[in-house]
Design a binder for these strands. Sequence first.
RNA 1: GCGGAUGUGGUGAAAUGGUAGACACGCCAGUUUUAGGUACUGGUGUCGCAAGACGUGUAGGUUCGAUUCCUAUCAUCCGCACCA
Length: 1120
Amino acid sequence: MKRYNPSEIEPKWQQTWTDTQLYKVTEDSSRPKYYMLTEFPYPSGDGLHAGHIREYTVGDVIARHKRMQGHNVLYPMGYDAFGLPTENYAIKHKIAPQVATATNVANFRRQFDQLGLSFDWSREVNTTDPDYYRWTQWLFLQFLKAGLAYQDEIAINWCPKEKTGLANEEVVNGKHERCGTPVEKKFLKQWLFRITDYADRLIDGLKTVDFPDKIANQQINWIGRSEGAEIDFAIKTQTEPTFYQFFEPGKIKPEHPFVERDGILAIVKHWNEDKYLGLRWKQVDWETFITGGIEAGQTPETAALAEIQQETGYINARLVKDLGRMHSQFFHVPKNQNRHGHFKMLYFELQDDKRVTVADEEQSIHEPVWLTRAEIADFKLPSSHRFMWEQLAGRPSDSVRVYTTRPDTLFGVTYLVLAPEHPLIERYIHQSSNAEEVSIYVKAAIGRAELERQEAKEKTGVELKGIKSVHPLTGEELPIWVADYVLAGYGTGAIMAVPAHDERDGEFAAQFDLPIIPVVEPVTGNPLPDEEYRRSIVALVRNPRTNEVLSINWGQQGGNIFIGGGIDEGEDVVETARREVLEETGYINLKLIGQSEKIHHHYIAHSKGGIKRGIDVWGVYFELENDDRDEQKLEADEEGKFTVEWLPSTKVEQLVNDELHKYVYEKFIGQKCYIGYGPLVNSGEFDGLQGDEAKAAIVSRLEQMGVGKTAKKYKLRDWVFSRQHYWGEPIPVIHCPKDGVVPVPDDQLPVTLPPVESYEPTDTGESPLAAMTDWVNVECPQCGGPAKRETDTMPNWAGSNWYYLRYMDPRNNQAFVGEKALDYWQHVDMYLGGMEHTTLHLLYSRFCHQFLYDQGLVPTPEPYAARRGQGIVLAADGRKMSKSIGNVINPSDIVAKYGADTMRLYILFMAPYDETTPWSDERLGGVNRFAYRVWTLVQQLAANTTQTGDPDGTFVTEVDRFVHKTLKKVHDDLHDMRFNTAIATMMELLNNLSTPAINTRIIEPRHADLATRTARTFVLMLAPFAPYIAEELWHELGSDDSVHTAAWPSYDPSLIKDDVVELAVQVNGKLRGTILAAVEASETEIVAAAKDNPNVAKFLTGTIAKTIVIPRRLVNFVVK
RNA sequence: GCGGAUGUGGUGAAAUGGUAGACACGCCAGUUUUAGGUACUGGUGUCGCAAGACGUGUAGGUUCGAUUCCUAUCAUCCGCACCA
């Protein structure tokens, strides 16, 4: 008998399978297709880890099973090789990333082959291969042409230490993962994809695919759809605009003297062209309009005319329009003075081109220039000058647009809040009376790391004083605040604050002492039909010395509640509360602290025979002044039913379960606001409406007025698609000063990465490609003029967006994938991968695919028909595997010691695929024993070659039955991806065939046919799990073809049915014995047999009230 | 805080309304060989001599019968998180 020696058979079969291209597929329309996909790896220097092995082994088992069942199986593999780890490696070791990638890929390939994975290597792809990324770039251009890719200046993650933009995945807990520096936000021009346009489709499409709930929910949650309304609040300015020039040239310098001087600002139009006079200042790099002081005896107009002549030489200007007055503070550069004063804003038109010579002295400070409208819009004018320009242009009246999911609380708005990044702040800050305070806050908030913003316990903010907003329905003026608890990136970046019904607004209002208007009456319990109406109170009494609250304990049924009772005729709320406390507990001296709003409570009074009640309740809050007590005055039905208890605050949450009483407690002690729905109050004509009805009514009123509409919002943001790194696909775009953004023509793709000296990101945060002037400077494909290439590259998700399509037709150089291949393969049938990609790759590639579907480029709306996420393989110590802890497993070591089959069997056997579970070397040894024992058994059976004599029919049936039952179970388990129980079932069969009772007989010559049959079936069943052992044994059993192209054995349904089954016999649900009964036995026979069982009989002492017979399972006697 | 999941022997786990703990690790005993590991056989939820009782995080409920369904609660894990 041959010894099982994996290190001998595994390389042998590996070679054979590779040589014969055993797993190569073509579009074979005679067989059903099956597309089995596992996520391709990032080829790092570390090689395969345990998670890879789990994923690829499971995919391999499914692929092999499908193949044996006659499917044409596509099970491909490739490499997602662009990205930072390789780039960092290149920087550190001065090795080209192309070279490092090739080395790593070779190592991965070696490990794949070791594991016996049945990939079709003729379809291998690599995202860094120019023949591949040519099509990644082509796809980018499809997005661009469809208007789904666009450029915008947005805040990205920025590492201030390394002066580089960062990918989201490089930011861990608000810090740069490489250097630990807290990440800031920085505005940079970025490429973005409009994934938000597909938000609804990405949610709705989930209904059409087979994804686990966990994954579907996580995606839905991530997209975060919410429905509400956008409402406009008009802006009203109250003060003269004041400009404190903090952000820009002219900033106050404290070391210089402060001088008050009034003056003028003037815009002067050209005599016949649409151009305006400006001054280019020579000492500093900025332009302004005409500006100057007012001397004694001058009017603003004469002063302005004098300035125009003095500074530009033009004489004949005519005053056309008075633009009002402003107040400004600035640093006057030529005089080295800080100045402040009132400025008159005037608009002149030149009558002709007559001018006088400008004095040299003036010329040395600034020179006159003509500015076009476009230039004015583009130049960084000081904000005061820009303001004047806008005044001239006719400023549209502004409003703040807010987004809310609770339009029903509109009447509870007491202020608005803008996110610090909100554009209206820059626009109005100069007209607010506390501009400096606001600007300091805004600057600090924007610069503050996101982490800090999240962790800040106290809310911060500042009022934009002098600027008011107007409530669209009441006309009331509301203050506008700037606070970083409002996020710029969500909704409109501005909110209407309803402190009475929103926790965050409530907290903010409490901190800054802002008014709170309740507009929703709380409702507890569920409304019931035919309720009896009552008015009552709940009294909360706190002892300030012990910090305990007074409760009454109704025992098991009622639990603890506070003091409650009905309001009598003519009694007020507080009187009632005092009376009830006295009657039920005897306490006399109570100090009134507070009274709640009206609460609507619905309940069933079980103590009063199940009466349904709808009550109006007022909570009343007292502090106990002293322990003086009278006798309790209980009603007859209360006597002895409850005890009075003082509860410490820690116990209240646990013991008080009644919804109403809980609410009253949280209202007074927890100071929580009511965020639920209920009838509106203080809301004018909308009083009494509630919930959706109230929302609809208010929104429709706003719509009539043209100041509001329903709106849907998503947490999902547009996808930032730029990276300032070398090792990625160049974005195939050319920037032309004349034609703007020009796509690289298809016939010039791919735009390949040029060789560079240094892969380091540059100081400016530009990609290192920006320094490659030969590469950057190109001709514009449209006008032929000088133009520049885009130097940003794509994120590493770009290549994986569509790789599953390329596998269908990987060598096509006419199209990203050919139509014939698409027609045949359609979409992925089963996609395995890590849970960590749920809201990244999996979402991105669905988006990409839906877009391609809309373009008519793919035949199906969704890329993946089914998805399964895998659980994490933890280290043996229960922690995550990590190189730094040193608890990782090395697959090559395990393969060397036990063989690949054992590795595969163990990783499948340890737990269900989606379960996170620790690695265990001991259990690995156990599975290795199974491999040995299978080997031994099959060799033993194979040795029984020649059938002589008559077999024992009963014995043969017994063995066949066991084999076929196992076969069915293994087949079903494979279908349900329950590999652990499939292997357990095969172990059971092995154990069974190894027992002396069966083993000694099956090796008899008269059972040679049975032995061969059993061995062959066992080997076929094992083939998807342990391909090497199965292949070797299959050949031992006399076959010349591969076991992996053999047909999967089907089970014989007649053999999996038993003639006789064991039934459990229960008495009152407790197991008392078992009986054997024929399958066809009648119920009467079964019951009789069950009664006969002596173990059962002794419990059948009383009357048998009921007998339950479940065929083939059990009998249960109910005895009284 | 929101969303999702999980909770069963010493351990990984099985059973999805019908004999709880399949299969495997570990442990105990034995057999063979041996210095030992390996291999093989048997045992192994807890208490109890036994009959039997108890037992699937905790407390209730539905049911003839609940690990499985319902309600509450606790714990752990994962994802998101000032999303208005």
